[in-house]
């Protein structure tokens, strides 16, 4: 191999092949995916996020929560995510069609959050977890998301409230054409 053009042409092919075979083919299959009802005439899922939750998604990204939390529930034969109570069905591509920058994540120092909204209780409990995580947890506190109220208690500020709204909006507890809930 002494020919520069030959080497570059070959390397170009090795880049172009997976680009076409994986990315363009993937785009052809997933690019037009939209919201859909589980059954004809039913409501469209995934539901649109409220405005405050969209702001909260930005806080989630700013703080780098994706470093420790995933947002994807694997099928029952591929890990114990459902047995852990993180979801009621596996995540499917349609669940993410409204998300502009999907935060699937690659590491779980903390639990998966794909269906956190379905198991979260009240805003106050989520706020308490963010301001004082359980003893033994690796999660830090987030003082910047809170401000002191007149009675001295910590209350979520604007960013804190947005993050809480976002966490509550994370739900994959509905049927979709690709993943029906068991009755």
């Amino acid at each position: 191999m002494k020919n520069l053009n030959l080497i570059l042409a070959g390397v170009f092919f090795t880049v172009a092949a997976p680009f076409g075979g994986l990315l363009l083919s993937g785009h052809a299959q997933l690019g037009s995916l939209g919201r859909a009802p589980a059954e004809e005439g039913g409501p469209l899922f995934p539901a649109k996020e409220p405005g405050l939750a969209i702001q909260g998604r930005q806080v989630y990204l700013e703080l780098g929560c994706v470093a420790c939390h995933t947002q994807q529930v694997r099928p029952a034969g591929q890990g114990s995510d459902i047995a852990q109570g993180w979801g009621v069905r596996p995540s499917v591509a349609r669940d993410y069609v409204l998300q502009s920058q999907v935060a699937l994540g690659n590491r779980r120092v903390g639990p998966d959050l794909a269906n956190y909204g379905a198991r979260a209780k009240t805003d106050a409990e989520i706020a308490a977890h963010l301001s004082a995580p359980a003893v033994g947890s690796s999660m830090p506190t987030f003082p910047s998301l809170f401000s002191k109220a007149k009675d001295g208690s910590l209350q979520p500020n604007e960013r804190g409230a947005a993050l809480i709204a976002y966490l509550k909006s994370l739900r994959q507890d509905y049927s979709s054409p690709e993943a029906k809930l068991k009755q």
Binding site: L22, G26, G31, Y96, V97, Q99, V102
Partner: peptide, 14 residues
């Protein structure tokens, strides 16, 4: 020029 959904995750893995 991002697309919504999981496609960016595939591009990222590539």
């Amino acid at each position: 020029c991002p697309t919504n959904g999981v496609l960016p995750a595939l591009v990222h893995s590539w």
